[in-house]
């Protein structure tokens, strides 16, 4: 069961990565990151079945961080949208050196 769960986790994670690479909509990219976090959570839960409750504790932490990240990240996106009228990553290059 562990192997299957890890495989599913790996596939989901890879889908998230591909989403980050191919999408340019900031919100969707953000959601892809959430998908990657979920994939990792699945691994944690799977391992916790084998090794104990620590994995589940970590899932709680990941969720907390994800919530915080969503709050700040979305606030940033709103802020950028107010300035640039877009959430397309192609048009957002404030960090250009």
């Amino acid at each position: 069961m562990l192997a299957e769960a890890l495989a599913i986790s790996a596939v989901l994670f890879t889908i998230g990565v591909i989403g980050v690479l191919t999408r340019r909509n900031a919100i969707i990219v953000f959601m892809c990151v959430e998908l990657m976090l979920n994939a990792v959570n699945l691994s944690f839960v799977a391992f916790s079945k084998l090794y104990g409750a620590t994995g589940q504790v970590f899932v709680v932490f990941v969720m907390t961080v994800a919530a915080a990240e969503a709050a700040v990240g979305l606030a940033i996106i709103i802020s950028i949208f107010r300035h640039q009228e877009t959430v397309n990553l192609k048009d957002i290059n404030l960090l250009r050196g």
Partner: peptide
């Protein structure tokens, strides 16, 4: 995060 979101938003 809450404070940051408030400030940014």
């Amino acid at each position: 995060a809450i404070a940051g979101a408030v400030v940014l938003g």
